[in-house]
Computed example of a mutant assay.
Amino acid sequence: MITRRDSLSLLAGAASAAILPARTFAQQAIDLSPEQAGRPRAQIDEAAIKLIAKDAKFVKDGVFTIANTAGRLPFGSYANDTRTIIGSEPDIGQLIADALGRKLEVLPTAWADWPLGVTSGKYDAVISNVTVTEQRKEKFDFSTYRKDLLGFYVKKDNEIVIREPRDVAGLKIIVSAGTNQEQILLRWNEANIKAGLKPVEPQYYDDDVVLYLALESGRADAYLGPNALLSFKAAQEGKTRLAGNFSGGWPVLAEIAVTTRKGAGLADAITHALNGQIKNGNYAKALARWNLSAEAIEESRANPPGLPKA
């Protein structure tokens, strides 16, 4: 568990990291081609290959087959050929496949279907913004590759900065019902009220157009959601900006990971491959392509502590 000081450091550090790359990212046209010519590629990592368990089985010979929900960018969506899945997660998959000396195949899946697909051997792994949890670790192995961050986004000219829970007191904040971020916001609000601070006014919208109109008009002060999605939109449209970040498992550090079947014998090799790409800079390039530099980790870990069971 991270301390309050660690939480504040995460808020401040992630905020600065996310704001700076957005300037250059916004100036670039998103490559929607199936070829993905700008995608970073890796050299074969013999040390990583040696860590593949002798009894490990891949779906196809010479191929690293991954699942992706292909819901929206930056995580994954269809290229302009309407068949090829592109995005930040396929980019990470490509680096791993290259390092293991294999071709990459990305298959679409519904979020509810990936666990069965991985455990049944339909996919070698899922790379689709999956957070490490203690419950999931009972059936899956993990190799981390990103921080799981939430972000407060405000109108571009709004000077609000949110560095700690007390900073949301009295604000009108948009959040999605039934989400992890809603539960965190409500816990913050409860603590603030007990401390004698003004309550938060949560706002809920089913329509993104109406949601962003509320931000632009001042009917809402901030929007709390997954940092990666909101950062991507902010950089592309230039209408909102990041006001603060914190862990998606607050106050526990949460991480996103490549997910493989428990005992499949692939996690150590994937973790080693990722660390090689972190060291040589390809990893940073892959995240920067999709404005995800704020979520970079310093080291990939195999099966780290995950979010506790509910």
Rank of each mutant, 00 (worst) to 15 (best):
Val126Ser: 07
Thr144Arg: 08
Lys147Ile: 04
Leu32Phe: 12
Gly71Asp: 04
Thr69Arg: 03
Gly38Cys: 02
Thr133Gly: 00
Pro21Met: 05
Pro34His: 07
Val118Tyr: 01
Ala15Glu: 15
Leu150Cys: 04
Thr144Asn: 03
Trp111Met: 13
Ser77Glu: 13
Phe142Asp: 02
Gln94Arg: 13
Asp148Ile: 01
Gly87Arg: 03
Ala37Met: 09
Gln135Gly: 14
Glu46Trp: 00
Leu51Asp: 07
Ala48Asp: 04
Lys137Glu: 02
Val130Pro: 09
Pro21Glu: 15
Leu73Arg: 11
Thr133Lys: 01
Phe142Ser: 09
Ala125His: 01
Asp141Gln: 14
Ala26Thr: 10
Gly87Lys: 08
Ser120Val: 02
Leu20Ser: 14
Ile85Thr: 01
Arg102Lys: 12
Tyr123Cys: 07
Thr24Asp: 15
Leu51Trp: 00
Trp111Lys: 04
Ala110Met: 15
Phe140Pro: 07
Pro40Asn: 11
Lys50Asp: 11
Asn68His: 01
Ser33Ile: 14
Thr69Ala: 06
Ser120His: 11
Thr119Val: 06
Asp148Thr: 05
Ser16His: 14
Phe64Ile: 09
Thr82Pro: 00
Leu10His: 11
Gly93Thr: 08
Arg83Gly: 00
Lys147Cys: 02
Pro21Gly: 13
Asp148Cys: 03
Ser16Arg: 14
Glu89Gln: 05
Leu107Asp: 02
Ile66Gly: 09
Ala17His: 06
Ile19Glu: 15
Phe140Lys: 01
Ile49Met: 10
Gly71Phe: 10
Thr119Lys: 12
Gly93Lys: 09
Thr131Gly: 04
Asp98Gln: 07
Arg102Tyr: 04
Gly117Pro: 05
Arg39Lys: 05
Ser33Asp: 09
Thr144Phe: 09
Val118Gln: 06
Ile127Cys: 01
Arg72Pro: 03
Ala12Asn: 14
Phe58Asp: 05
Ala67Leu: 15
Gly76His: 06
Trp111Gln: 13
Val126Met: 05
Ala22Met: 15
Arg72Cys: 10
Ala99Tyr: 00
Arg136Trp: 02
Phe75Leu: 02
Ser77His: 11
Tyr78Gln: 04
Ala47Arg: 13
Ala125Arg: 02
Gly13Trp: 04
Leu51Val: 04
Ala37Gly: 02
Ile85Ala: 07
Thr82Gln: 09
Ile96Phe: 04
Ala17Lys: 02
Glu35Pro: 01
Thr119Gln: 12
Gly62Tyr: 07
Thr144His: 08
Thr109Cys: 13
Thr133Phe: 08
Gln28Val: 12
Ala15Val: 12
Asp124His: 05
Ala42Ile: 01
Leu95Asp: 10
Arg72Ala: 15
Leu107Ala: 14
Gly121Ser: 06
Glu35Trp: 00
Arg146Trp: 07
Asn129Gln: 12
Gly38Asn: 12
Leu149Gln: 09
Arg41Tyr: 03
Asn80Met: 08
Gln27Arg: 14
Lys54Asp: 15
Ala125Tyr: 03
